[in-house]
Simulated scan of single mutants.
Amino acid sequence: MTDLNPTNQQILHYARHFLQCRGYNGFSYKDISQKLGIKNASIHHYYPKKEDLVAALLEERRKSLAVSIAQMKESEKSAREQLQYYFDYALQEFDEGKCICPPGSVIIDFHELPEKVKKQDMLLLDDILDWLNNVLRTGLEQGEFEFSDPVDTHAEMVVETLMGARLVSSIKGRKTLVRAISSIKSCLGWRD
């Protein structure tokens, strides 16, 4: 990945915002350059093609997730605390106007996407599912959760429910996302 100087960080910031609000085909370098007051060529300097930018953005999200997971492990957060972090993060992003989660932001265009974007999106989704599998397995073993279906089924259900709820919340409001989180907790046998 290229150097993350202030300009590059701003490019990624706005690209992430546009990607999560509009999807892959819903923004261009012009949208980013107008926000930053720079020329499109400045963006092309860092990312020759849009696929380079989006792949780098998804890779950055993977690295950020890995750091968050390591921090939670280091601080010995319980399974519930880790899962609550995930829910809080989804709510925070929604409150910031980002209606679609990073891996979900390219789903509508997935089959037409360049291979490097598909690869990074699948790696990010796999990272999230691996982490959720570990969290749910630990929570089940330690009595924090109570469910009988396979752990991987529940991990997929969590991701799928949050992705769908974030989309519907973009037109129905935050309460839809809050209800979805409550439903997930209920399915996991999470009792406050």
Rank of each mutant, 00 (worst) to 15 (best):
L91F: 08
Q92R: 11
Q92T: 10
Q92N: 06
E93P: 00
F94P: 03
D95E: 15
K98M: 07
K98N: 13
C99M: 12
C99S: 13
P103K: 11
P103A: 10
P103Q: 06
P103G: 09
G104N: 14
G104D: 11
S105G: 04
S105E: 00
S105C: 09
V106G: 03
D109W: 02
F110A: 06
F110D: 01
F110W: 05
F110Q: 03
H111K: 10
E112L: 12
E112S: 08
E112Q: 12
L113P: 01
P114E: 14
E115L: 14
E115A: 15
K116Q: 12
V117L: 05
K119S: 10
K119C: 06
K119F: 11
Q120E: 15
Q120K: 15
Q120V: 00
Q120G: 00
D121V: 08
D121R: 11
M122Y: 13
L124S: 05
L125V: 02
L125D: 06
L125G: 07
D126I: 03
D127L: 01
I128L: 09
I128G: 02
L129Q: 10
W131S: 09
W131A: 09
L132D: 08
L132I: 05
L132E: 06
N134D: 14
N134K: 05
V135G: 07
V135I: 15
V135N: 05
L136R: 12
R137V: 00
T138E: 15
E141C: 12
Q142L: 09
E144W: 05
E144P: 04
E144A: 08
F145V: 08
E146T: 06
E146F: 08
F147K: 02
F147S: 02
F147L: 03
S148L: 14
D149P: 02
V151E: 03
V151M: 12
D152V: 07
T153D: 08
T153Y: 14
A155P: 07
V158H: 06
E160L: 11
T161F: 02
T161M: 14
M163G: 02
G164D: 00
G164Y: 09
R166N: 09
L167C: 01
L167H: 07
L167E: 05
L167I: 04
V168E: 05
S169G: 15
I171R: 07
I171Y: 13
